[in-house]
Amino acid sequence: MVVENDITIDALWKLLEQVPDPEIPVLSILDLGIVRDVKLQDGQVEIIITPTYSGCPAMDAISMDIRLKLIEHGYKNIKISSVLSPAWTTDWMTEEGKIKLNKYGIAPPKMSGDLSNSTPVCPQCNSADTKLLSQFGSTACKALYQCNDCKEPFDYFKCH
């Protein structure tokens, strides 16, 4: 437990690292790049987050999870705000996050400047020979692909 005058911004970032994305639990919300800022003023902790997709149903759960994590560590005066601008982009996902995503079986997003027409590499067998099945997958942030070599269908985290 911490007492309020011991709070540091660094400690808060470390705690946020422990909050997983509710839909892709191998990623923390820091890996996803949705935490914009952490502020401390007069004993109040403010966490500023940005939504991935406008209609992402995970956003409410994420706010709640952040709050619970902070409460669990003794914080009381917590404010969670959401900002839209500048709009979230998958370029903000950390390299470590992309590696974790791939291990989990989801092909990570390309960088937005990458204009090549190449399809994502299969996260199961690393083949580059893959095809699009559907532009829309199991959640708003994913598309569905299939590997032409191992035949496994897989999710691709859309470049956004």
Binding site: Y53, S54, G55, S134, Q135, F136, G137, A140
Partner: peptide, 12 residues
């Protein structure tokens, strides 16, 4: 799934 995902974006 595609049409409902689009719909989710629209409601958001």
């Amino acid at each position: 799934i595609a049409i409902t995902n689009i719909t989710l974006d629209l409601i958001g």
